[in-house]
Design a protein around this nucleic acid. Sequence first.
DNA 1: TTATTTGCAAACGGTTTGCCGATTA
DNA 2: TAATCGGCAAACCGTTTGCAAATAA
Lengths: 140, 140
Amino acid sequence: MMSTIEEKCKEKGVRLTDQRKVIAKILSESKEVYGSKDHPDVDELHKRVTKIDDKISIATVYRTVKLFEEAGILIKHDFKAGKARYEINDDHNHLIDINSGEIVEFVDKDIEALQVKIANKLGYKLVDHKLELYGLKIKK
Amino acid sequence: MMSTIEEKCKEKGVRLTDQRKVIAKILSESKEVYGSKDHPDVDELHKRVTKIDDKISIATVYRTVKLFEEAGILIKHDFKAGKARYEINDDHNHLIDINSGEIVEFVDKDIEALQVKIANKLGYKLVDHKLELYGLKIKK
DNA sequence: TTATTTGCAAACGGTTTGCCGATTA
DNA sequence: TAATCGGCAAACCGTTTGCAAATAA
Protein backbone atom coordinates (compact mmCIF):
# COMPACT_ATOMS: atom_id res chain seq x y z
CA MET A 1 0.00 0.00 0.00
CA MET A 2 1.03 3.55 -0.72
CA SER A 3 2.47 5.64 2.10
CA THR A 4 1.05 9.01 3.05
CA ILE A 5 4.24 10.58 1.81
CA GLU A 6 3.75 9.09 -1.63
CA GLU A 7 0.24 10.50 -1.73
CA LYS A 8 1.52 13.94 -0.82
CA CYS A 9 4.14 13.69 -3.56
CA LYS A 10 1.40 12.97 -6.10
CA GLU A 11 -0.56 15.99 -4.87
CA LYS A 12 2.46 18.24 -5.20
CA GLY A 13 3.58 16.79 -8.54
CA VAL A 14 6.80 15.38 -7.12
CA ARG A 15 8.13 12.67 -9.39
CA LEU A 16 8.12 9.28 -7.66
CA THR A 17 11.32 7.39 -8.28
CA ASP A 18 12.23 4.03 -6.78
CA GLN A 19 14.71 5.71 -4.45
CA ARG A 20 12.15 8.21 -3.19
CA LYS A 21 9.63 5.45 -2.58
CA VAL A 22 12.11 3.59 -0.42
CA ILE A 23 13.03 6.72 1.53
CA ALA A 24 9.34 7.58 1.99
CA LYS A 25 8.67 4.08 3.29
CA ILE A 26 11.52 4.27 5.81
CA LEU A 27 10.34 7.66 7.03
CA SER A 28 6.75 6.51 7.34
CA GLU A 29 7.75 3.51 9.40
CA SER A 30 10.15 5.47 11.57
CA LYS A 31 7.89 5.97 14.59
CA GLU A 32 6.27 2.55 14.50
CA VAL A 33 9.56 0.74 14.37
CA TYR A 34 11.75 2.96 16.50
CA GLY A 35 9.26 4.68 18.80
CA SER A 36 8.35 8.33 19.20
CA LYS A 37 11.85 9.40 20.15
CA ASP A 38 13.06 8.58 16.66
CA HIS A 39 14.41 11.59 14.79
CA PRO A 40 16.97 10.13 12.40
CA ASP A 41 19.75 12.13 10.79
CA VAL A 42 20.68 11.70 7.14
CA ASP A 43 23.35 9.15 7.92
CA GLU A 44 20.94 7.01 9.89
CA LEU A 45 18.33 7.28 7.14
CA HIS A 46 20.90 6.24 4.60
CA LYS A 47 21.80 3.19 6.67
CA ARG A 48 18.17 2.10 6.93
CA VAL A 49 17.46 2.81 3.29
CA THR A 50 20.41 0.82 1.99
CA LYS A 51 19.11 -2.26 3.77
CA ILE A 52 16.33 -2.24 1.19
CA ASP A 53 18.33 -0.97 -1.77
CA ASP A 54 22.06 -0.70 -1.25
CA LYS A 55 22.56 1.26 -4.46
CA ILE A 56 20.98 4.43 -3.03
CA SER A 57 23.63 7.06 -2.44
CA ILE A 58 23.78 9.46 0.47
CA ALA A 59 23.56 12.36 -1.98
CA THR A 60 20.13 11.11 -2.98
CA VAL A 61 19.03 10.93 0.63
CA TYR A 62 20.17 14.53 1.14
CA ARG A 63 18.35 15.67 -1.98
CA THR A 64 15.18 13.78 -1.12
CA VAL A 65 15.03 14.95 2.45
CA LYS A 66 15.39 18.56 1.28
CA LEU A 67 12.71 18.01 -1.35
CA PHE A 68 10.29 16.56 1.21
CA GLU A 69 11.02 19.41 3.55
CA GLU A 70 10.24 21.98 0.88
CA ALA A 71 7.02 20.14 0.14
CA GLY A 72 6.08 20.48 3.82
CA ILE A 73 6.19 16.73 4.34
CA LEU A 74 9.13 16.65 6.73
CA ILE A 75 10.46 19.00 9.33
CA LYS A 76 14.11 19.50 9.96
CA HIS A 77 15.47 19.88 13.48
CA ASP A 78 18.81 21.30 14.55
CA PHE A 79 18.71 20.26 18.22
CA LYS A 80 21.75 21.86 19.84
CA ALA A 81 23.62 21.92 16.51
CA GLY A 82 25.55 19.08 14.90
CA LYS A 83 23.71 17.26 12.19
CA ALA A 84 20.17 17.91 11.09
CA ARG A 85 17.49 15.40 12.01
CA TYR A 86 14.16 14.74 10.35
CA GLU A 87 10.66 13.56 11.07
CA ILE A 88 7.25 13.67 9.49
CA ASN A 89 5.69 17.09 9.91
CA ASP A 90 2.92 16.87 12.47
CA ASP A 91 3.52 19.86 14.67
CA HIS A 92 4.50 19.01 18.20
CA ASN A 93 7.26 20.11 20.55
CA HIS A 94 10.23 18.33 22.05
CA LEU A 95 11.63 17.82 25.49
CA ILE A 96 15.23 16.64 25.34
CA ASP A 97 16.83 14.75 28.22
CA ILE A 98 20.22 16.40 28.62
CA ASN A 99 21.72 13.27 30.09
CA SER A 100 20.55 10.58 27.73
CA GLY A 101 19.64 12.65 24.67
CA GLU A 102 16.26 10.96 24.67
CA ILE A 103 13.44 12.94 23.12
CA VAL A 104 9.90 13.23 24.48
CA GLU A 105 7.25 14.72 22.22
CA PHE A 106 4.41 16.81 23.54
CA VAL A 107 1.70 19.23 22.52
CA ASP A 108 0.07 21.84 24.71
CA LYS A 109 -2.89 23.93 23.63
CA ASP A 110 -2.28 26.63 26.23
CA ILE A 111 1.25 27.29 25.06
CA GLU A 112 0.10 27.31 21.48
CA ALA A 113 -2.53 29.94 22.24
CA LEU A 114 -0.06 32.06 24.17
CA GLN A 115 2.36 32.04 21.27
CA VAL A 116 -0.25 33.40 18.90
CA LYS A 117 -1.13 36.07 21.43
CA ILE A 118 2.48 37.13 21.94
CA ALA A 119 3.17 37.35 18.21
CA ASN A 120 0.08 39.48 17.71
CA LYS A 121 1.04 41.77 20.56
CA LEU A 122 4.42 42.30 18.87
CA GLY A 123 2.70 43.08 15.57
CA TYR A 124 3.23 39.76 13.83
CA LYS A 125 1.13 36.95 12.46
CA LEU A 126 2.54 33.64 13.74
CA VAL A 127 3.42 31.27 10.91
CA ASP A 128 5.80 28.86 12.58
CA HIS A 129 7.38 28.16 15.92
CA LYS A 130 9.98 26.07 17.63
CA LEU A 131 9.84 25.10 21.28
CA GLU A 132 12.43 22.86 22.85
CA LEU A 133 12.66 22.09 26.54
CA TYR A 134 15.83 20.64 28.01
CA GLY A 135 15.43 18.71 31.23
CA LEU A 136 16.70 16.21 33.75
CA LYS A 137 14.69 13.13 34.62
CA ILE A 138 13.16 13.34 38.08
CA LYS A 139 13.86 10.17 40.00
CA LYS A 140 10.91 8.58 41.70
CA MET B 1 36.16 50.27 32.98
CA MET B 2 35.80 46.53 33.12
CA SER B 3 32.99 44.85 31.22
CA THR B 4 30.58 42.45 32.90
CA ILE B 5 32.07 39.68 30.85
CA GLU B 6 35.51 40.37 32.28
CA GLU B 7 34.07 40.21 35.78
CA LYS B 8 32.48 36.86 35.05
CA CYS B 9 35.78 35.57 33.68
CA LYS B 10 37.49 36.50 36.93
CA GLU B 11 34.79 34.70 38.92
CA LYS B 12 35.19 31.57 36.84
CA GLY B 13 38.98 31.71 36.75
CA VAL B 14 39.14 32.28 33.00
CA ARG B 15 42.47 33.77 32.05
CA LEU B 16 42.10 37.28 30.67
CA THR B 17 44.23 37.81 27.62
CA ASP B 18 44.33 40.91 25.44
CA GLN B 19 42.39 39.13 22.72
CA ARG B 20 39.67 37.99 25.10
CA LYS B 21 39.32 41.48 26.50
CA VAL B 22 38.74 42.88 23.04
CA ILE B 23 36.20 40.19 22.19
CA ALA B 24 34.43 40.73 25.54
CA LYS B 25 34.26 44.45 24.86
CA ILE B 26 32.76 43.96 21.40
CA LEU B 27 30.17 41.54 22.78
CA SER B 28 29.26 43.85 25.63
CA GLU B 29 28.72 46.76 23.28
CA SER B 30 26.80 44.69 20.77
CA LYS B 31 23.27 45.69 21.81
CA GLU B 32 24.04 49.33 22.51
CA VAL B 33 25.71 49.88 19.18
CA TYR B 34 23.66 47.65 16.93
CA GLY B 35 20.31 47.41 18.71
CA SER B 36 18.49 44.48 20.23
CA LYS B 37 18.26 42.58 16.96
CA ASP B 38 22.02 42.12 16.97
CA HIS B 39 23.07 38.47 17.14
CA PRO B 40 26.43 38.41 15.38
CA ASP B 41 27.98 35.27 13.92
CA VAL B 42 31.67 34.47 14.35
CA ASP B 43 32.60 36.10 11.08
CA GLU B 44 30.88 39.33 12.03
CA LEU B 45 32.51 39.28 15.47
CA HIS B 46 35.87 38.77 13.85
CA LYS B 47 35.29 41.78 11.59
CA ARG B 48 34.40 44.01 14.53
CA VAL B 49 37.23 42.72 16.66
CA THR B 50 39.91 43.25 14.04
CA LYS B 51 38.97 46.93 13.85
CA ILE B 52 40.48 47.19 17.32
CA ASP B 53 43.27 44.65 16.90
CA ASP B 54 43.78 43.30 13.41
CA LYS B 55 46.13 40.58 14.61
CA ILE B 56 43.34 38.55 16.22
CA SER B 57 42.66 35.42 14.20
CA ILE B 58 39.29 33.89 13.54
CA ALA B 59 40.45 30.71 15.30
CA THR B 60 40.79 32.74 18.47
CA VAL B 61 37.29 34.13 18.07
CA TYR B 62 35.96 30.60 17.69
CA ARG B 63 37.86 29.42 20.75
CA THR B 64 36.81 32.39 22.85
CA VAL B 65 33.18 32.23 21.93
CA LYS B 66 33.09 28.54 22.85
CA LEU B 67 34.88 29.30 26.11
CA PHE B 68 32.39 32.03 27.01
CA GLU B 69 29.53 29.74 26.13
CA GLU B 70 30.85 27.01 28.40
CA ALA B 71 31.21 29.58 31.17
CA GLY B 72 27.54 30.45 30.73
CA ILE B 73 28.36 33.97 29.57
CA LEU B 74 27.08 33.66 26.03
CA ILE B 75 24.34 31.71 24.40
CA LYS B 76 24.63 30.19 21.00
CA HIS B 77 21.74 30.24 18.56
CA ASP B 78 21.26 28.10 15.48
CA PHE B 79 18.31 29.94 13.99
CA LYS B 80 17.16 27.85 11.03
CA ALA B 81 20.66 26.40 10.58
CA GLY B 82 23.65 27.92 8.78
CA LYS B 83 26.12 29.59 11.02
CA ALA B 84 25.88 29.89 14.77
CA ARG B 85 25.14 33.31 16.26
CA TYR B 86 25.90 34.60 19.72
CA GLU B 87 24.68 37.01 22.35
CA ILE B 88 25.10 37.64 26.03
CA ASN B 89 23.13 35.13 28.07
CA ASP B 90 20.14 36.89 29.59
CA ASP B 91 17.33 34.45 28.94
CA HIS B 92 14.72 35.77 26.57
CA ASN B 93 13.03 34.40 23.48
CA HIS B 94 13.07 35.41 19.83
CA LEU B 95 10.52 36.22 17.21
CA ILE B 96 12.04 36.09 13.74
CA ASP B 97 10.51 37.98 10.82
CA ILE B 98 10.53 35.45 8.00
CA ASN B 99 10.65 38.18 5.38
CA SER B 100 13.36 40.46 6.69
CA GLY B 101 15.17 38.14 9.08
CA GLU B 102 14.81 40.80 11.73
CA ILE B 103 14.78 39.54 15.30
CA VAL B 104 12.49 40.75 18.07
CA GLU B 105 13.29 39.72 21.62
CA PHE B 106 10.62 39.07 24.21
CA VAL B 107 9.98 37.51 27.58
CA ASP B 108 6.70 36.15 28.87
CA LYS B 109 6.17 34.96 32.42
CA ASP B 110 3.09 32.90 31.56
CA ILE B 111 4.90 30.87 28.94
CA GLU B 112 7.82 30.39 31.28
CA ALA B 113 5.54 29.03 34.00
CA LEU B 114 3.79 26.73 31.56
CA GLN B 115 7.10 25.29 30.41
CA VAL B 116 8.06 24.35 33.95
CA LYS B 117 4.66 22.78 34.46
CA ILE B 118 4.85 20.73 31.26
CA ALA B 119 8.34 19.46 32.05
CA ASN B 120 7.24 18.40 35.50
CA LYS B 121 4.18 16.64 34.15
CA LEU B 122 6.47 14.66 31.83
CA GLY B 123 8.71 13.74 34.75
CA TYR B 124 11.52 16.20 34.13
CA LYS B 125 13.11 19.16 35.86
CA LEU B 126 13.41 22.01 33.37
CA VAL B 127 16.99 23.25 33.03
CA ASP B 128 16.92 25.07 29.70
CA HIS B 129 14.56 25.96 26.91
CA LYS B 130 14.43 27.39 23.45
CA LEU B 131 11.43 29.18 22.03
CA GLU B 132 11.46 30.74 18.60
CA LEU B 133 8.45 32.23 16.90
CA TYR B 134 8.47 32.85 13.16
CA GLY B 135 6.10 35.52 11.92
CA LEU B 136 4.98 37.98 9.28
CA LYS B 137 4.68 41.65 10.09
CA ILE B 138 1.05 42.76 10.27
CA LYS B 139 0.62 45.90 8.19
CA LYS B 140 -1.18 48.73 9.90
C1' DT C 1 11.39 11.45 -26.35
C1' DT C 2 12.71 14.87 -23.09
C1' DA C 3 13.02 16.74 -18.71
C1' DT C 4 14.36 15.10 -14.42
C1' DT C 5 16.95 12.30 -11.36
C1' DT C 6 20.86 9.60 -9.67
C1' DG C 7 25.63 8.09 -8.36
C1' DC C 8 30.11 9.46 -7.98
C1' DA C 9 33.58 12.21 -6.48
C1' DA C 10 35.07 16.64 -5.90
C1' DA C 11 34.00 21.06 -3.83
C1' DC C 12 32.20 23.86 -0.12
C1' DG C 13 31.68 26.43 4.26
C1' DG C 14 31.65 26.59 8.98
C1' DT C 15 34.33 24.92 12.70
C1' DT C 16 38.16 22.51 15.02
C1' DT C 17 42.91 21.29 15.83
C1' DG C 18 48.20 20.29 15.90
C1' DC C 19 52.16 22.64 16.12
C1' DC C 20 55.09 25.92 18.35
C1' DG C 21 56.31 30.47 19.58
C1' DA C 22 54.22 34.07 22.74
C1' DT C 23 51.89 35.42 26.86
C1' DT C 24 49.60 35.26 31.46
C1' DA C 25 49.48 34.55 36.38
C1' DT D 1 58.75 29.63 35.52
C1' DA D 2 54.96 26.69 34.36
C1' DA D 3 50.73 26.42 32.36
C1' DT D 4 47.92 28.29 29.06
C1' DC D 5 46.96 30.73 24.93
C1' DG D 6 47.14 32.49 20.04
C1' DG D 7 48.31 32.44 15.00
C1' DC D 8 48.71 29.79 11.11
C1' DA D 9 47.44 26.43 8.01
C1' DA D 10 45.78 22.02 7.51
C1' DA D 11 42.20 18.88 8.75
C1' DC D 12 37.38 17.88 9.62
C1' DC D 13 32.60 16.93 8.77
C1' DG D 14 28.06 17.71 7.30
C1' DT D 15 26.16 19.14 3.14
C1' DT D 16 25.97 20.60 -1.76
C1' DT D 17 27.00 20.27 -6.61
C1' DG D 18 28.86 19.39 -11.65
C1' DC D 19 28.82 15.89 -14.69
C1' DA D 20 27.41 12.01 -17.57
C1' DA D 21 24.60 7.96 -17.47
C1' DA D 22 19.96 6.26 -16.17
C1' DT D 23 15.03 6.76 -15.70
C1' DA D 24 10.07 8.56 -15.07
C1' DA D 25 6.33 10.43 -17.46
